[in-house]
Amino acid sequence: MASGFKRTRHGIALRLEPVETAVVENLVDQLKQMLEELPKGDPGLAELGISESTEAPRDAALARLFPDGYREDGEAAGEFRRYTEASLRDGKERDAAVVLASLGADEIVLDAEQAQSWLRSLNDLRLALGTRLEISEDGYERFEELDWNSPEYAMFVTYDWLTQMQDSLVGCMLSR
């Protein structure tokens, strides 16, 4: 992905090396598994987009992907979650599916809607990884001191790569 996303006559284009394709595929698969950890609730209600969960997920990364809609009103936050969490999850699953379906081509070319899905999904991945890495406003110095062979360093390199990829996609989408 030496140069990231590019705006072309046919849409927004991206070339990935096979190893990069494998990384994206693996990360999106992990995201899908995380999404399945959310409580599904009553199937009848679920069809109406109503879930039974009124509490934020315990897992920090999941909680970041499904934040409270109210900050100082627990009851309102619970009701908001009951009515929005299922459709939020469905949207994330749809976005993830769009990303997976577009992988594999020598040059990935996205229309405007697919680009939105990529944008949101890349952000979901960054939120999940960034939460696990405990990314803060303090900058990245902490990671530069890590052992290059540590799993955390590998995770940070991946996070940084996703950041560059997302930034290049935003650049394409803003410059219309």
Binding site: R64, L119, N123, R126, L127, G130, T131, I135, S136, E137, T163, Q166, D167, V170, G171, L174
Partner: peptide, 8 residues
């Protein structure tokens, strides 16, 4: 939040 990009 510290993760979402300013451009995004």
């Amino acid at each position: 939040d510290p993760i979402n990009l300013m451009s995004y």
